[in-house]
Design a protein around this nucleic acid. Structure first.
Length: 642
DNA sequence: ATAGGGTTAG
């Protein structure tokens, strides 16, 4: 071992432009030399530079200095360099390593081969009679966190108690909280927190984040209120907490409070705010937050995370062109940027653009991940590129090392099912290597609606009713599939099942942004809007014109056994039609009408939108619960495939 | 040495 490491040193010295020490330095006192070498190590940016300094350490005769070598190993850890063989050999050279040197190696291993080596080293350290320092426990706890091994974490916890003196250490306490919450034992983390004699803002923030990750914003908020000195990170944790829990309004509200409290904000805060605006899907907020970010000096050109968040925001606000402009401006791009753009294109029916961008991406050195494949597979699905999708699906693991998850199987079932290969889709569900989840069966059920196949639908639905007993959408889908086959008895049976379970259909609603960015909401069948007279008038005008062009109401979109007249009346007051009528008379000619709705758009509304875009020469963009439809000159971007 | 970030389908 010793011989090997000498060889290594010789090599290091040979490879570096090593300068012999002057006589002068040999008399310099050791401590001064040590601190000089440490600051040299601090400036190292890569392995090569570290090895050069290492050669100097040896020449100065400091290869026994735990102090300097600890720094060296920490720098290597920072660079994510393997602990074997280089740092390990350095360590083995030292006859009497101090606890810090032991610990630096334990810490290094904690990131790479988490538990095994770290614990082994800790045991030999104890056998050598070297007492641990608080950093030792932090390192061990980090190793447990990385391995998500709460069992060992508890044992380390017990050690800190039995050895004594460490339970009151702030760093150990904070790392312990982190270990418990990352392993999913929030209550244990809370207990550590409650028993800590001293806490700092980091202890509080760890818990706040833990509660918000669990979706419990009330507890997170309670802690935040009690936190005596709130810093930027703590505030940001609340903003992103609300944002990640799909509560965008509260996120924005917190951001405003944060600014009013005079707290600085940085790019991390802004990313959370941008994501909240994306969820609101309103251009008013999009433009506002873009302005706020740029005022603080952050934009697509200088920050990847901000850029990627903006790409996502613009595509969710219905402006995929702007999303691409942002993407284009980004100087640095990563897997998030590409995935957001690919998903954005797919969402807007720009399947070819999505697939093309994917192929551009794999030419760079950025590796696609699971999300990227979701994006590109849905894109294939939307244009019926079955063969290409199949090819990508087989390549994702083989060529890109991304193991397909349940969601990827759902995409494949969707791809096969949509294109009419229902039997093959069912076969895939039956032969897939893991148990299908609701998404997989749901994709199959959706395909059965498109291809009016009640038999396969029954199979999918029976699984869905077990997996998602309260998923109202599944019951409605099945009943619609029965309705389109005119199996009214079965429709009644499903409706009864829904009633028994106490499930209520969400009322359909659509909303548009008015001239000043104000939101106008419409509910299906509700004619009590202040402008309902104008709406009715605009709707009738439109229908008359459409009928001259051969439009007939598509009565099969009403899944009830009613008279044709009743069906027509119901169809006419679908919320998106009301919103369209409002948009037509309340905005000036040539202005794009943007509508959002909470449910999937029905076929009748879809064809009305197509017709209206032509007759009124308007671009219409509708975001339903899944994706965007761009209507222009009588055609929709989805190619009637949704 | 410990705390906060962007993308996911029916």
């Amino acid at each position: 071992m010793v011989a090997a490491s000498h060889k290594l040193y010789a090599q290091t010295a040979r490879n570096s432009s090593f300068i012999p020490i002057s006589q002068h330095y040999q008399h310099t006192n050791k401590q001064l030399l040590e601190s000089r070498l440490i600051s040299l190590l601090d400036d190292c940016k890569n392995l090569h530079q570290i090895k050069r300094v290492h050669a100097q350490i040896i020449c100065y005769g400091l290869h026994q200095s735990s102090f300097v070598l600890t720094k060296l190993i920490r720098m290597l850890t920072k660079l994510n360099a393997p602990m074997d063989p280089y740092p390990r050999l350095i360590f083995q050279q030292v006859k009497q390593p101090n606890p810090f040197l032991w610990t630096s190696l334990i810490r290094g291993y904690s990131l790479q081969r988490p538990l095994f080596e770290s614990i082994l080293l800790y045991n030999s350290m104890r056998r050598h009679g070297t007492g641990p320092v608080s950093f030792t426990f932090s390192a061990l706890l980090k190793a447990c966190t990385a391995a998500l091994d709460v069992g060992l974490g508890r044992q380390i916890h017990a050690q800190t108690i039995s050895i004594g003196g460490f339970t009151s250490d702030l760093y150990v306490g904070n790392t312990m909280i982190d270990m418990y919450v990352k392993c999913g034992f929030l209550d244990c983390g809370r207990k550590v927190f409650d028993e800590m004699p001293d806490r700092d803002v980091i202890s509080w923030t760890s818990l706040i984040v833990a509660y918000s990750k669990r979706g419990d914003m009330e507890s997170a908020g309670g802690l935040f209120d009690e936190l005596p000195t709130k810093d930027m990170v703590a505030w940001t944790a609340m903003v992103t907490g609300f944002s990640q829990n799909a509560r965008p309004r509260e996120a924005l509200c917190f951001f405003e409070r944060m600014e009013n409290a005079g707290i600085e904000t940085d790019e991390v805060t802004l990313v959370g705010v941008i994501s909240a605006c994306a969820q609101l899907g309103a251009t008013k907020y999009a433009n506002w937050v873009r302005h706020v970010a740029e005022k603080s000096g952050y934009g697509p050109a200088n920050n990847v995370a901000i850029g990627s968040a903006l790409v996502d925001m613009y595509s969710k606000c219905g402006d995929v062109e702007e999303a691409f402009k942002v993407f284009d401006k980004m100087r640095e791009r990563n897997v998030f940027s590409y995935s957001s753009m690919i998903v954005g294109f797919a969402m807007h029916g720009r399947a070819n653009a999505a697939v093309q961008l994917f192929h551009e991406m794999v030419k760079t050195d950025i590796r696609p991940n699971g999300v990227t494949f979701i994006g590109v597979l849905t894109a294939c699905s939307h244009v019926g590129m079955v063969e290409h999708g199949r090819h990508l699906f087989t390549m994702m693991e083989k060529s890109y090392g991304v193991t397909p998850t349940l969601d990827h199987y759902a995409c494949m079932v969707d791809l096969l099912g949509r294109s009419g290969c229902l039997e093959e889709a069912l076969e895939l569900v039956r032969t897939m290597p893991m148990d299908p989840h609701g998404g997989v069966w749901g994709a199959l059920l959706g395909a059965c609606r498109i291809h009016a196949n009640p038999d396969v639908a029954e199979i999918a639905a029976s699984h869905l009713f077990e997996l998602e007993p309260n998923g109202i959408g599944n019951y409605i889908l099945l009943s619609n599939i029965y309705a389109s086959a005119r199996r009214w008895d079965d429709v009644a049976r499903v409706r009864k099942l829904m009633r028994e379970k106490g499930l209520k259909k969400n009322p359909g609603s659509s909303w548009v942004e008015g001239k000043k960015g104000e939101i106008q909401e419409f509910f299906a069948g509700d004619m009590t809007h202040v402008k309902s007279r104008e709406i009715r008038q605009a709707l009738e005008d439109l229908m008359n014109k459409l009928q001259l062009h051969g439009y007939e109401p598509n009565l099969s979109c009403v899944p009830y056994d009613l008279s044709d007249e009743d069906k027509k009346r119901i169809l006419m007051t679908h919320s998106e039609k009301l919103a369209l009528a409002f948009g037509l008379f309340s905005t000036s000619a040539g202005c794009t009408i943007r509508i959002m709705k909470n449910l999937r758009i029905c076929e009748d509304c879809h064809s009305v939108m197509c017709g209206a875009s032509q007759i009124a020469s308007r671009e219409i963009v509708i975001r339903d619960n899944m994706r965007f439809h761009h209507f222009k000159d009588g055609k929709c971007s989805c190619g009637n495939f949704w």
